[in-house]
């Protein structure tokens, strides 16, 4: 005999709640762990100065700047390309072999391990195109990495725009492109922004692709052009924790670096949320 409806409801509810609480618990634990170990390292000096004495003292300023540049650089490339590709796929592409091939390529790109992107960036941007290990090579590599994410979320955002908007704009004698430009795209911005939030987190956190394409082990100055090498927070953290000159001594610096990385991602996400809210209110949807 099966359980009665009420009992099974209680059991299901208990398991679902437990699962949700476990996930939230882990997230909170990681946050607590990093904050409690890292906050003592945070100081004005830590945030604004160059590393000193083989990175056992001093700050992480160049790594912060490098990560911010990477976010900006990869977004400048990936956002327009991703959004334009999504517009093509949702609004223009027919149901044919070409479209199928493009969709397959995007799906496979999304599932490709990031180190493979790193190797591709090394071969393509660093060597073949001659950009060298640089901010440019690394930003382009990261852009390729996140373009599938941006395409997918932009496609969803575009498809969520009610077809009535398109119909009534076309019925006013307004061309398809103008309709997309003036009605469909503005209405889908909140969704597109939400999608790019996820990719910003990835850009800030990826290590392997930038290690191969331009991140420096140690570089006590800021990049002065897109062809410069740079430091970045995740690589710096990796170096301090595995290959530093004194791993035990720099432990507080490691936690501090992790905390700063976390804060940057949260701050960028927060800005993205504000942008999304602004557009939602403007559109009143």
């Amino acid at each position: 005999m099966g359980l009665n409806a009420k009992t099974s409801e209680i059991i299901a509810f208990a398991f679902l709640t437990l699962a949700a609480l476990t996930v939230a618990g882990f997230v909170l634990f990681i946050l607590y762990y990093i904050v409690s170990n890292g906050y003592s390292a945070i100081s004005i000096e830590f945030l604004t100065e160059m590393p000193r004495k083989m990175m056992t003292e001093g700050g992480i300023y160049p790594a912060i700047v490098g990560t911010v540049y990477l976010i900006i650089g990869s977004m400048l490339v990936a956002l327009p390309m991703g959004i334009l590709a999504a517009i093509y796929l949702t609004e223009y592409a027919g149901e044919n072999r070409t479209t199928w091939a493009i969709e397959m390529a995007i799906n496979n790109l999304a599932g490709t391990p990031s180190v493979v992107f790193g190797l591709f960036g090394l071969a393509m941007f660093v060597k073949y195109l001659g950009f060298g290990p640089s901010l440019l090579s690394a930003s382009l590599t990261l852009a390729l990495l996140i373009i599938p994410v941006i395409i997918r979320s932009s496609e969803e955002a575009l498809l969520a725009v009610p077809p009535e908007y398109r119909e009534s704009s076309l019925a006013l004698g307004i061309s398809k492109w103008q309709t997309i430009r003036h009605v469909v795209l503005p209405a889908s911005i909140p969704g597109i922004v939400t999608g790019s939030i996820l990719s910003i987190g990835r850009v800030a956190g990826e290590t392997a692709p930038i290690l191969l394409t331009g991140a420096a082990y140690f570089l006590p100055r800021l990049p002065d052009s897109v062809y410069s090498q740079f430091m970045a927070l995740p690589c710096h953290l990796f170096v301090l924790a595995t290959a530093g000159t004194n791993i035990a001594q720099t432990r507080p610096l490691q936690y501090g670096t992790a905390l700063v990385l976390l804060m940057i991602v949260l701050a960028v996400n927060f800005v993205a949320v504000l942008v999304r809210r602004y557009y939602r209110q403007k559109l009143k949807i």
Partner: peptide, 26 residues
Amino acid sequence: LRKQVGMVFQKPNPFPMSIYDNIAYG
């Protein structure tokens, strides 16, 4: 052609803009 032949649909479907912009749009 669609400039010459306008259409009003079954469900009211204004754009997500102000009243003014809805009309000024075309």
